[in-house]
Each structure stands twice: as structure tokens, then as C-alpha cells.
Amino acid sequence: MAIRILTDQAPVQTPMVSKRSGIAGTLASALLSNRKALAGAAVLAAFTLIAIFAPVISPYDPHALQFEPILGPSRAHLLGTTGNGQDIFSQLMWSTRESLLLAVVAGIMATVIAVVVGVSAAYLGGLWDHVLNLVTDVFLVIPTLPLMIVVAAYAASGGVAVLIAVIVITGWSYGARQLRSQALSLRNREFLEAARVRGERSLYIILFEVLPNMTSLIVAIFLGAALYAVLAAAGLQFIGLGDTNALSWGTMLYWAQANGALLAGSPLWVLAPGICIALLGAAFALLNYAFDEIANPALRPVRRKRWS
């Protein structure tokens, strides 16, 4: 081995794909029988519905400065109003769109880069592996938040696209590292040997033989990247990067902090968006944990006990 693997936190195991029900079927049935996965999926579904129906659910225009500032919760304003007199509940519903979109898009993009870098490093081997591995390690160890802050500050007027870009740049490396480990362990399996003997091209082997066997890890990496995106975006928006006039949970927290919401006696302004960020993050984290259990049966709970 050319370079010692820096971290092997995720157990690298070959997923057990049963031939009869296929990959999708195995994943789906495993997900349904896992309580953590169910909880995560339910929260994610709820947020998706809120994002789609935000205009219907929210009672007021989220931008309109038409109410008394810092009202407590009431029937008219479920979560009260902001220091600028906007309805917090309406803002919260509309913000779901940007926050969810950002998590999913950045998560997918980071996963694609991770797959390309990780699998090609393992498959190409030699110098390519050495270089790609080194790049991965460098990105893995560089503290991401200061880097994101510098880039986002330079591109101050960029809005969501800039946020997605910095999150993807800083968020792909962890997945690439895990995928490389697993692809390496797959490389010398008999079924790949058979494909090579059949005379299949490398691209075919990677796309149709290697990748399908890594599905559960790829899904887990997407979930991890999405969680990272949720937290990173919230952090960047909280310090006022990105578009502060757009509606997102992180931006709501930015305005709450800028107006001293905690000391001004409107804790709900801080609590509500934070709980949403935490719930969305927890949904991704729970699904991720469940996938870990599915991919590595040794980690499954031994006795069925209620934990919630």
C-alpha cells in the first residue's frame, strides 16, 4: 500500500446484496425494518412537503414588515414576530425551501465528486492513486470553515450558488476516502476478474460491476454530505455570508443574532430555525446511522429495545 489510510472510521464491508430481491429491494426492506431509518425518513418527508406547500401553509408574506415587532406567540402569530415585525412562522416555512434544496443539491454534488475521485483512485492505482489520495487527504485535514468563510467572503454577492460551491469543495473528501477503501477491497474479487476475462471495458466494469456493489456506501456518503451541507450552510449564513435577504434558517438566525433576539426577550426567533436545522440534520444523521447498521450487520442492536 502506497500511503497509510489516515482514517478508517467507517467499517469497510461488502454490502450483502441478495440476488433475488435486487439492490433496491434489499435497501427498501432493510430501511423499513429499522426504526432509526423510519424516523429519519419521516422527518425528511415532512420537510419536503413543507417546502412544496410553503405558500399554502404560511399565513403571511414572510418578508412583509407589517406587524408589531417582538410579539409573543399567539393565535395570529404561532411563533410570534421578529424584531422587524415579520411573522416568524411564515419565515420558517418559506426558509425550508432554500435549506432543503441546498442540503440535497450540495449533498449530491459532493457525492458525485467523491465517487469519481475515490473509485478512480482505487481502480487506476499507481501514480494516479497516489496523487488523488494526497489531494483527498489535504482536503480532509484543512479546516473547512475558515476556508469556506474566506471563499464566501470574496464572492460576497453570490447567494446560494456560492454557498453550494464552497460546501461541495470542502465536503467531498471524507466520502472519497471511504469509497476508495471499499473499491480497493472489491478490486480483486472474482466477479470483477470474470468481467475482465470476458473482455469488458474498464468503464463498463466500473459502472455496472463496481458501483452497484457500492450502492449502500454511496447512499450513506450522500446522507453524510447532506448533513454536512445543512450544518455548514447554517454556520455560513449565521455569520452573514450568502444572501442575507434570502429566506433560510441560517439567515433567520443571523438576523436574530444581529438584533440581539435572546436579550431582547424573543427566544423563539432563535429556537425555531435552530430546531428545524437540527431536525433536518438529525434526519440525515439517523438515516446514515441506519445505513451503517444495514451495511455492517455486526453493529445491529442485539436485543430489540425501545430507545426513543
Binding site: L231, G235, F238, L253, A278, G281, A282
Partner: peptide, 9 residues
Amino acid sequence: VISAFPYFW
């Protein structure tokens, strides 16, 4: 669940 909370929040 807690690890999904933003530090700052």
C-alpha cells in the same frame, strides 16, 4: 441526534 445540531445554535 445531538451531533446534527449546529454548534453555534
